[in-house]
């Protein structure tokens, strides 16, 4: 009986299953992969914007804004991403539509990818706030004071001094966040968005070749992680130009 297993596995070979055109499922996987990357990039970018605002607000904002941001980062980081994604996924379109109805407009459909980006980006923002806050604090504060002494206004100070100077301290944390954002897109499978993990499960469920497809998806995820690591290393090298290597300064 045991060889019937291998027979059923061998009937359609791995390469036929992964072929890019139907009846192969490779095209679906690649489409899901591209969706995942798009959502990941969008969520990371949104998180970065929230994070920059949050970090500056936490450091230079008034007492109320600081406390509210503290509540935001603490609550978001204490609750599972899956729960937050569900909450935001349900709540955001609902709130928008209620707002539109009270204003007298018709309902709109918030697209799946958009809700996903908002949900993941909102979560990313809390982590990015903490990473960037730490990075800003790691900048020798005399540099920022010097900029202020030259009469730079806050915008110019941020653009010319704080952001470039904090970059080397922020990149390891941000790199980690990017990988978390990309892997976090898999959670959108639970709410039914067609990213790589859900496409994989559909393909696997139809063909019953579970190992083949989940392994293939794993390879795709891993590939992007490894490529990201190489690119991030280069960016970090660039951001650290003119500084001591970490190993020696330790």
């Amino acid at each position: 009986m045991t060889d019937s297993v291998f027979l059923s596995l061998a009937q359609t070979s791995m390469f036929e299953l992964l072929a890019p055109t139907p009846p192969g499922w490779g095209g679906n996987l690649v489409r899901g992969f591209i969706n995942s990357i798009g959502i990941g990039v969008g969520a990371f970018a949104l998180g970065l914007v929230i994070g920059i605002g949050g970090a500056f607000g936490k450091l230079y904002g008034g007492p109320v804004r600081r406390d509210l941001l503290q509540v935001y980062t603490t609550l978001i980081r204490a609750v599972p991403e899956l729960v937050l994604i569900l909450l935001i996924y349900f709540a955001v379109p609902d709130l928008i539509n209620r707002l539109l109805e009270t204003l007298g407009y018709g309902r709109i459909d918030v697209s799946g990818p958009m809700a996903g980006i908002v949900a993941l980006g909102f979560v990313q923002g809390a982590y990015a706030t903490e990473v960037l806050r730490g990075a800003i604090l790691a900048v020798p504060q005399g540099q920022i004071e010097a900029g202020r002494a030259f009469g730079m206004n806050p915008r110019m100070l941020m653009r010319r001094i704080t952001l470039p100077a904090m970059l080397p301290f922020a990149i390891p944390g941000l790199a980690n966040l990017w990988l978390v954002a990309f892997k976090g897109t898999a959670l959108l499978a639970v709410v039914g968005f067609n990213e790589l993990t859900l496409e994989t499960r559909q393909a696997a469920g139809t063909t019953k070749a579970y190992f083949t497809f989940f392994m293939a998806a794993g390879v795709l995820y891993l590939l992007l992680t490894l490529i990201s690591n190489v690119l991030i290393g280069r960016v970090e090298h660039w951001a650290r130009r003119g500084r001591q290597p970490i190993a020696e300064s330790r």
Partner: peptide
């Protein structure tokens, strides 16, 4: 390097 959800499903 891979999502936990994928590992669980695998």
């Amino acid at each position: 390097g891979t999502p936990l959800l994928l590992q669980i499903w695998l």
